[in-house]
Amino acid sequence: MGPVPNKTDKNLTYVSLKGVGHKYDPHPNSPMVVQDIDLDIHRHEFVAVVGPSGCGKSTLLRMVAGLLVPSHGSVSVFNLPVTEPRDDVGIVFQKANLLPWLTVRKNVLFPLKHKYGRYSSADEVRANELLEMAGLMQFADKMPDELSGGMQQRVGIVRALLLNPDILLMDEPFSALDALTREQIGFDLLDIWREHPKTVLFITHSISEAVLLSDRILVMSKRPGTVMDLIEVDLARPRTSKTINSPRFAELTDIIRGYIYEPNVPV
């Protein structure tokens, strides 16, 4: 594995993508899905990736997760090239993907059960703490289908936090939810993030969601996905529903919208 990185080092790059490109078909003439992506993410930074559907956002996330090997360039985490999935990286998927035969608590504990075949009572205590924090304690013994979609996705986030990853990869986690639930769970995520600071790579196709949640936004072009801009979100934290009404919020969303809808107009 090489030297163990000092994760408290402020200058340590958590995630680094250099000239990353990918195509699913190895044929030389086949089209690229993403191309020439450069991105560095630092400690406890919240980076969102927005772009039109099919621009390769999810492909990017899977390469950071170690589920896909890039065909060009390099992806590294803690300055080490990513060759396989790592324990300090957690993933939240588009759908909650809870196992319907397990209770909420057992779903949260599933990563341990699945990875090691067992979990300790200390792990159960931790699962309960996480559920408590997410306001889900009263549903701990319920089955997933007894929960609303929003609550299910919160369980999905709690599950990803169980192994206490340094880096959290979120692949359009709220896209299956209705608009109201979606906004609420965004604020919930910010609360959780404040209590358990993580380095987050957040894929979304909602511009306002990206602006509300993140520190920086990577705007991608349509396929083959390239970097159009990397925008600094200079909105004060903690962000609340008031943030949405601020003029700067509107400005930022307009800038991004400009990229998405009129990709040839320079800003």
């Binding site: 899977r62 997760a65 170690g66 589920l67 396989e84 999935p85 324990d87 990286v89 957690g90 993933i91 998927f93 588009q94 759908k95 993907n97 196992l99 035969w101 599933f110 990563p111 059960k113 699945h114 990875k115 075949g117």
Partner: peptide, 28 residues
């Protein structure tokens, strides 16, 4: 669901557990 298989892969769980804890119950 393919994402469940990705979850299993991201945890680097042994394949027999992928079969027993995910695939077979999903096939029930």
């Amino acid at each position: 669901p393919p994402e469940m298989i990705e979850l299993s892969k991201s945890l680097r769980a042994p394949r027999y557990r992928e079969t027993w804890q995910i695939r077979i119950p999903y096939a029930i």
